[in-house]
Structure formats: C-alpha cells, structure tokens
Computed example of a mutant assay.
Amino acid sequence: MAVNLSKGQKVDLTKTNPGLTKIKVGLGWDLNKYDGGSDFDLDASTFLLNAVGKVNSDLDFIFYNNPSNSNNSIAISGDNRTGEGTGDDESVMIDLGNVPADVHKIAFCITIHEAKERNQNFGQVVNSYVRVVNEATNEELIRYDLGEDFSIETAITVGELYRHSGEWKFSAVGSGFQDGLAGLCRDYGVTV
C-alpha cells in the first residue's frame, strides 16, 4: 500500500522496503482548460546533487537531451510532448545500489517547455503528481499529489530522493519557480 505524502513530508524508502534495489519515479500531469493556441509540453528532469546541493558537472542534469548519467544508474524514459492519457507521463528509472557515491540527493522537476514564449504556467496544469514504484513488483510505494497551488510558476521541484544514514529517503517538496528550466539549472549549478 502506497504512502501518500503532503508537501514537506519525508518518508523512509529503503529502510521500510528491505531489498529494494530498482525503482521508477513516475511523474504525471493533465492540462486544465487551455485554449492558448500553442502546444503545451511539460518535461521531467532530474538533477544529481552533491553534499552542498549542486551538480558536480553539467552531465548530472538528466533530461530529454541527456537521458542518463555516466554509469546508467539513472535514466529518464523519454519526452512525452502532450501529457495525454492516463498513468505516468514521464518517468525516471533508478538503480539505487549503483548511484554514484558523490550523489547525495536526486531532485525531480517538471518544467514547461517555452513557457514564457507561449504564455503558459502551472496554473493551467492539474492532477500533477510524483510516485515511487518498486520496479520489480510494479507496486506503488510513495505518492505525492501536488494539488493546484500553483499559478504563475513555470517550473516545479516536485520531490527529492536523498541519502540518510546509509538509506534512501523521499521528500515531498512541491516548490514552484517562475524562471523555468533556466532558473532551476542556475539554482542547482548547471551552466546555462
């Protein structure tokens, strides 16, 4: 049975699920009534962060143009350009035992492609969520439904997976940003 989180809550992942080695982090969303005339393309991205909350190199930014890290322990599923249909729109596969030791935290984000140019924001998005699934059994372990607390934001850090005392934990973040993907990249130390 999945643990449902609220913004700011943290939960043990590997301690409460002994033997868990591979997970899928699924991200999903739907569009609210939108008739702006432009396609609405949301993208999942992942930042692999060191002990001070920054990437060690630009290669630690995983997205549709850089779909996996150097040892393939973290890989993004691809780019769903519409978000239509049920289930996860995009996902990140993680082999927990092979995540490089210098990665202390993995931040999961959703951004709106060309949001400023298309006059789009997360006020036009509904049913956003992040969930953690045991890849071996397809069991949903953790779920965080973001709600509709956003209006002018063009990027959201939805959650973080982080190391704590030799175990992995998950934090429901739900923080929005107005500067889109470029703002997230600057915050996490990626060269823009």
Rank of each mutant, 00 (worst) to 15 (best):
P100L: 04
K116H: 14
N119A: 13
N71A: 10
D43W: 05
D58K: 13
N50I: 05
S45E: 08
Q120M: 12
D79P: 04
R118F: 04
R118V: 00
K105V: 01
G83L: 04
N98P: 06
E84P: 00
D95H: 07
N65K: 11
F63R: 02
P100N: 13
I106A: 05
N66Y: 03
G83M: 05
N80M: 00
I112H: 00
D39Y: 02
K116V: 15
H104T: 11
I76Y: 10
V132Y: 03
E117T: 09
H104P: 02
Q120R: 11
G85T: 11
G53D: 09
E90T: 12
N121D: 14
H113I: 08
F63L: 10
L49A: 13
V99H: 04
D39A: 10
L96N: 07
A136S: 15
S68G: 12
K116I: 15
C109R: 00
L59H: 03
S77K: 03
G37Q: 11
E140W: 01
L141T: 06
R143Y: 03
D89C: 11
N56W: 07
V103Q: 04
V132F: 02
P67I: 13
L96V: 05
K54N: 11
A44K: 00
C109P: 03
I74R: 02
A44I: 01
T82A: 03
Q120S: 10
T82D: 15
V55I: 09
Y129E: 00
G123E: 11
G123K: 06
R131D: 09
G37T: 07
F61A: 15
A107T: 06
F40N: 00
R143G: 08
A75Q: 12
A44T: 07
S38Q: 13
D60P: 08
V132E: 04
S38F: 14
C109L: 02
F63E: 13
I110G: 03
D41H: 04
T111R: 02
H113N: 09
N69I: 10
Y129C: 02
F63K: 07
R81S: 12
I110W: 05
S73W: 01
Y34N: 06
L49V: 10
I94L: 08
A107E: 05
N69S: 11
H113E: 11
I62N: 09
E140L: 08
V125D: 01
N119L: 10
T111F: 06
N121K: 01
D41R: 02
V103T: 13
N127W: 03
T111D: 12
N127P: 07
I112P: 01
E117G: 12
V55K: 02
G78F: 11
S91M: 01
S68I: 04
K54A: 14
F122V: 09
I74P: 06
M93E: 05
E139F: 07
R81H: 12
E90Q: 10
